[in-house]
Amino acid sequence: MRIEFCLSIALCAIPLCAQDHAGQYTQADIERGSRLYALNCALCHGVNGDSISNVDLKSGRFRNATSDEDLAKVVANGLQGTAMPPHKFDTSEMTGVIAYIRSMRDYGTGAVAIGEASAGKAVFEGKGACLSCHRVGAAGSRVAPDLTDIGSIRSASALERSLLDPNAAMLPINRSVRIVTKAGKVINGRRLNEDTYSVQLMDEKENLLSLNKADLREYKVITTSPMPSFKDKLSAPELADLLAYLLTLKGIN
């Protein structure tokens, strides 16, 4: 049953289960929902479903809904006191919208080879040395983005793109900065936030720093990723295993 449901997800070549919930969605429902999402939802929620603070539709977790029925109520009635307005959908349209939201993490992603998660964990912790920069749960470093829930917010193909071509896949938010203070101190770190007058970052020793730009002699945002491409560093089976492991990382609960 579980496998059947997963195989029905549009364009998803491998069995991935994004969420555990009642319901089966047909390819037609998901496709219809995708079109309706683009027209009705993307303006505020963004094409990735994560434009609104603390709302990530791809994650399958919602503050105001658990079941598909809950979701349909929120979509139909809106949420008082928020920017979410009511939406006028007939039954088949609503089914499509819910089907798409439940499937959007993996919608439209290409076929990706997925291996064995247990072997992937060994690559992650061993040959890949991922924990030297990334963190999962209580293990590893904080200098690169925390991956504890990466399997619930990224598709397999997005993860593969990050591993093979990290420069192209890196979001501007995660860029490295190189700083020299007026006192001559050199600071390298990962940008967490920036405004006209200041920058907040995590340095190589995991310290949170907030600096005034007026106190800096040099401030450089580096557009290349500090993570190497694993294209030639891992074999195809190792990469498939690593992806399988990353997809099991669904957060602390």
């Binding site: 009705n40 303006l43 094409v47 994560d50 006028k88 959908f89 997005a158 192209a168 940008r191």
Partner: peptide, 26 residues
């Protein structure tokens, strides 16, 4: 119903365009 005829996306893959209000930091 909404009558928007499509959608705009950011020129950087995976990134959201600046929207109607600031969402997550940075």
């Amino acid at each position: 119903q909404r009558f928007t005829g499509g959608r705009p996306v950011a020129p950087i893959a995976g990134a959201n365009n600046p929207s109607l209000r600031s969402g997550q930091i940075n």
